[in-house]
Design a protein around this nucleic acid. Structure first.
Lengths: 141, 141
DNA sequence: GTGATTGCAAATCTTTTGCACTAAA
DNA sequence: TTTAGTGCAAAAGATTTGCAATCAC
């Protein structure tokens, strides 16, 4: 089955609508990357991983476009960027409230559901600022 | 007063012992960087900031040595690396249990004392792993 | 002396940018 | 058409590395 077609004669409408809803033109590259990212279970990717998958799926996309797309999807709220490693950016397809286990050795990242962890007695944010997000990273090895 | 001398005729013994205790030869560069880092209140530095301060204090240190030293100090437990930005590494002279406010706009980092925040109902670490650290980052802007 | 440490410049790696070309609406 | 999006190659920025010179013990 071609990556651009679901085999039902209906070219994955849900993803198409998702891009349209985000105000992003459904180009061949965005559709293919979105399909890799959003069909199937939630995942954590780096730009390099996604580029490799695109290549493996016979989708021609430049690395620059992979970076652009990851950032556009993040800005549109379709992805979330996770900062765990100062050398590489990870993007999470799970945009619900949750946290992470980070395996320092392998660079692997696992979700911790939001209800399995709680941050209490949060201090007030400094005057003039707003809390944008609270990230909890449990580093294991 | 010279940075290599306290003016008391006693060349800052505490820092010297700190390096010796960590098994690090007290070289001119390490002593000077340690003085910049550990004399005075706790702080957050990047390699570039520390290099600039060394330069301002008339200490000749190469950037490569600044990086080496920051990592050696971190391995020795004298510093702690904080990951908040995927483009830059921060090092914290406060090695006690605490968390951080990160100002996305300016790149500034503030400590949140360990007793002002609590993470409860932590999930068990995956089998075969040990929790190395739990980082809470409150992103504000 | 001898091995650890340093400096420098080059290399590496990730990410961004400029700009001509292509494609969506 | 018209404007957004893409690819490529070059640039940028942070960090690491190789190796000869230097320093601590």
């Amino acid at each position: 089955m071609d990556i651009m077609n679901t085999g039902t004669g209906r070219p994955f409408t849900k993803i198409l609508d998702r891009l349209r809803g985000a105000g992003l033109r459904p180009t061949r590259q965005r559709l293919a990357l979105a399909k890799l990212l959003f069909e199937g279970p939630d995942r954590h990717v780096t730009a390099e991983i996604l580029r490799a998958e695109a290549q493996a799926a016979n989708v021609r996309v430049s690395l620059a476009t992979v970076y652009n797309t990851l950032h556009q999807f993040t800005t549109a709220g379709l992805l979330r960027e996770i900062v765990v490693d100062s050398q590489r950016s990870y993007f999470d397809t799970n945009i619900s409230d949750h946290h992470h286990f980070f395996y320092e050795g392998s660079g692997r990242l696992d979700d911790i559901p939001g209800d399995q962890i709680a941050v209490t007695s949060m201090p007030a944010p400094p005057v003039g600022t707003t809390i944008k997000r609270v990230d909890v990273i449990v580093r294991v090895d």
